[in-house]
Amino acid sequence: MLANIWILSEKAENLPELCAGARQYGQKVSAVVIGSAADAEQASGAGPDQVYYWPRGATDLFEDFTAPVSALLLAEQPDALFVRDSRRARALAGRIAARMGTAIMANLESCALVEGKLLVEALMFGGAAVRAQKATGLAMLMIGGGFFAAEAAGGKAPVAVQESKPVSSGATLVERRQVETEKVNLGAAKQVVGVGRGLARQDDLALIGDLARALGAEIGCTRPVAEGENWMAKERYIGVTGAMIKPDVYWAFGVSGQVQHMVGVAGARVIVAVNKDKNAPIFKQCDYGLIGDLYKVAPALTNILQKS
């Protein structure tokens, strides 16, 4: 076992997952909290042995805690730092990594303790490769949601309030506002219809909507559909940098089958592909492929399903 693992999350609600994960490899688990007293309280009950708490004022930037957190890391010398993935946490972790002289391991497939070191398998090249690696110094791991499962924790860990202050990089806050996000749980869906750039217009999503209703399926898409075209919410794109899903059936319409997308559906029991190009790479990665026009296939399929 490693002697001491630190965990850090922008949101305290994600600490139970990280803590349960860190417990598998570390004797002692210490949580870093940059936030409110309520966050520190929540962290204390999430299962760690120790909480280091930095109070964060309303205009303090999360990223400006680089110096105080790094200083304590240098003093305490933990073996590893597990960071729950979020954009702010990535920004802070990148800066900490530079100070600690290490690189963050991200896009994890697996993690194991081998000969006293964390052996981490990470996806590379959009999923076309898996790399096994170890850190030579502090091991910093970027942990996605659901990588570890939370466990019930009892007791309360002591909270050490830190006196050290954030150090401003010169940036000042002008405004913060909430933005609408769509709540979808593609991961739990039994059937998912995925749309690719084979769809010509946003209006044509109606065809896919009809089919999804007939199937009782959720709708997902490829990254360019959500990001270049902005036809669907970002929460709906599937792939190495988006949702990783495990439905019984994944229906891909007008999806070419690039590795970055297909990695996200590798866990599907059955993959069905509809593409008009018989050379599309997806036909080598599906169970059933129909070479044809999605504009004919989707309505025909809806029709058959509605009748049965």
Binding site: G101, A128, V130, A132, Q133, K134, A135, V263
Partner: peptide, 10 residues
Amino acid sequence: TLEVISTLAP
């Protein structure tokens, strides 16, 4: 800072 053990196809 990272020691690569292997890089393989999935």
